[in-house]
Design a protein around this nucleic acid. Structure first.
Lengths: 222, 222
DNA sequence: AAGCATACCTACTCGTGCGTAGGGTTACGC
DNA sequence: GCGTAACCCTACGCACGAGTAGGTATGCTT
């Protein structure tokens, strides 16, 4: 039995920490391309240049591996935002910087985060985890809105705030998706456009300019 | 071999069209609860009160079955909107009615459409189909915006329009999700809130009130 | 009443892919 | 140099679930 005929002797044994990162890189890549179920542990192991039992030894089951991917990429994304946002900034500036950082991040890693994120929202085992993350983000956004609103001396119910925040978050996710499959688009400019519709809308709304349903024809009042 | 010991003799043979609907009902239910992969054909058949080969005979493979679900629910949703929108209405009224109908529909079928929709966006085989549908909707929304904008005598690039439309669509989807897991919420009122942020934002924006990125500190101009 | 199409079933095959048993080899401490 | 612990492998067991083969009963037509 001839072993390792030729090929670069890159088969050096590597410390655990390094291999784990390589595995995660491979996993993110394969999960993104094939989806959670479409991805096989064999392919991930193969892509990481390692054999399957190693993956199990280091990162656990497929489900745990996916969570680990989600966790790493999610943390990176949050970090990218945290790096540019300081708590002493005004609410609109905080929102602007977050948006900029977020779309910049998505644009820079066109696969990876946003793809995993979409995957996770569908699959039962992860939907909960993702929903929790999403809720945290919504609360931050709602907080920003509330700050501005308080300065303007306006009262709004919590539900109202929540819905508006959900709308903003959803809009941003959607625009991020758009960014992912428009490689020629500039994240910076896209962020500006997004900020336009989001902030102008929210600001005007909170300032009191509200839209009311028309009652023109055939709408029976109760 | 005793067959059918007791139980209601509901085991009457039913015409194909009826059974197909029962199967689709069961499929939608199971797919929503378990997700595409989590659902088994056995469970769907069981839930429909029928055996597996029947499902294959009438609706084809699992993938085809899921597409059939998507198709039926999607058509129902589109129909709910088409029922209340006439082409001779003003753009804002068209948008308002669509929104109202959409959130009303989602609210009325709290599982079903929106859950399947989320599922489909993640899985590779259906992502294409869903993206196409989504694009059509985005184009409709973009059309509404363009109409209004043309009336206001303002010029905007197609890309700008597309991004704003994507933002609006994403925001609506997100709010729909919120509605799904807030059973106590009123779709009508939610639609109004949504219209507030969407339309006021878009209208103000297209009227020329745009937000510009601040250039306060340390931002080197190119 | 015979014929026939359609509705319907039980009981299989078989691929796929997760997870593991059990064993080799390299580095590092002593 | 020698033990020990970490790294890494080939090869398998096994469950699960999609899809099917082949046969039975029922109602509708003539």
């Amino acid at each position: 039995m001839l072993a390792r005929v030729s090929s670069t002797p890159t088969f050096r044994r590597l410390p655990r920490a390094v291999r784990e990162q390589q595995m995660l890189d491979a996993a993110v890549k394969v999960f993104s391309r094939r989806g959670y179920h479409g991805a096989s542990m064999d392919e991930i192991a193969d892509d990481a240049g390692i054999s399957k039992p190693m993956v199990y030894a280091y990162l656990g089951t497929k489900e745990e591996l996916f969570v680990a991917c989600l966790h790493r990429e999610g943390t990176r994304m949050m970090q990218a935002i945290a790096d540019v946002v300081a708590p002493d900034l005004s609410a609109d500036e905080r929102l602007w910087r977050s948006l900029r950082a977020f779309l910049g991040f998505v644009g820079a890693h066109r696969d990876g985060w946003s793809v995993l994120y979409r995957q996770a929202r569908g699959e039962q085992p992860f939907a909960g985890e993702i929903t929790a993350l999403r809720r945290r983000i919504v609360e931050v956004v709602a907080g920003m809105l509330e700050d501005t609103l308080r300065d303007a001396g306006r009262e709004v119910t919590e539900t109202e705030l929540e819905v508006v925040a959900y709308a903003l978050v959803g809009a941003t996710e959607s625009v991020a998706d758009w960014l992912v499959d428009h490689p020629e688009a500039d994240p910076e400019q896209t962020a500006t456009r997004m900020m336009n519709v989001a902030w102008v809308g929210a600001a005007q709304l909170l300032a009191g300019t509200s839209w009311r349903p028309p009652n023109r024809r055939g709408e029976a009042p109760s």
